[in-house]
């Protein structure tokens, strides 16, 4: 599957969150969407997943315009927690199963086991690391063609981050693609094969990760520093 954004723009009143972006996501790849806070990463993801509509430009899935049907091909995990506190992990699984045709319960159970999450744990009792793992588990249990993970490594411990990275590598769909947004660039260095750098709603640079090493002898961390070094933290 190929997802193409052309001239994609999102304006909120006077602020332009995403500014005439052209980018293509192809199957079989894991993309890093990089940039400081407020550079437009989340807004781009929300438009692709169909949660917010573009002010201008369009998104196509295999050449077809985005419709309610194409939204079913996208599995999106936002930064915020999106589960009800009173639910157990099992309830969340049932909820997802009801909601999404592509939800695979067997994979869900396997993922829970690999992540050492028990089905009867209540959402309100989960640590932030467990909650992050839970989000990855439900999202990857959908056999969607496009998986969007918004800041999946934010604010969680090293071991949980390792588990999440391993799970993404192990369960990335072969006939689809994964897009991970993060400002923790080091963590994604080995995992992604393509990196997109955003600033102020625009794409300022994109590269194949191995090619960057081959041609410029730089890692994406080096490139990140080069691009954003002048920015005030």
């Amino acid at each position: 599957m190929k997802v193409q954004c052309s001239n994609l723009t999102k304006k909120y009143y006077t602020k332009t969150a995403v500014d005439h972006i052209n980018v293509t996501f192809s199957e079989g790849h894991i993309y890093a969407l990089l940039g400081p806070n407020g550079s437009g990463k989340s807004t781009l993801m929300k438009m692709i997943s169909g949660l917010t509509s573009p002010s201008d430009g369009e998104i196509s899935f295999d050449g077809e315009k985005q419709t309610w049907r194409s939204k079913a091909d996208v599995a999106y995990a936002p930064t915020e927690s999106f589960f009800f506190n009173y639910m157990s992990i099992k309830d969340v699984g049932n909820y997802y199963e009801d909601f999404f045709e592509d939800f695979d319960r067997e994979i869900f159970l396997k993922l829970l086991q690999e992540m050492a999450l028990s089905e009867d744990l209540k959402i309100k009792n989960l640590s932030s690391g467990m909650l992050a793992k839970m989000k990855i588990a439900v999202t990857l249990s959908r056999r969607a063609k496009m998986i969007l993970l918004d800041e999946p490594l934010n604010g969680i411990d090293l071991m949980s981050r390792d588990t999440i990275i391993k799970t993404i590598i192990g369960y990335a769909p072969e006939n689809g693609c994964v897009v991970i947004s993060s400002h923790m660039v080091e963590e994604l260095e080995k995992t992604v094969d393509y990196a997109i750098f955003m600033r102020d709603g625009s794409i300022v640079f994109e590269t194949d990760v191995e090619q960057l090493r081959e041609k410029e002898r730089k890692s994406i961390v080096d490139k990140y520093r080069e691009i954003y070094s002048w920015e005030v933290a």
């Binding site: 790849h29 192990g170 080995k190 191995e210």
Partner: peptide
Amino acid sequence: SRELALQYDINPNTAAR
């Protein structure tokens, strides 16, 4: 190649290459 990717924590395409 998927197992190799997991062993080294690398991208599956890199592993295939």
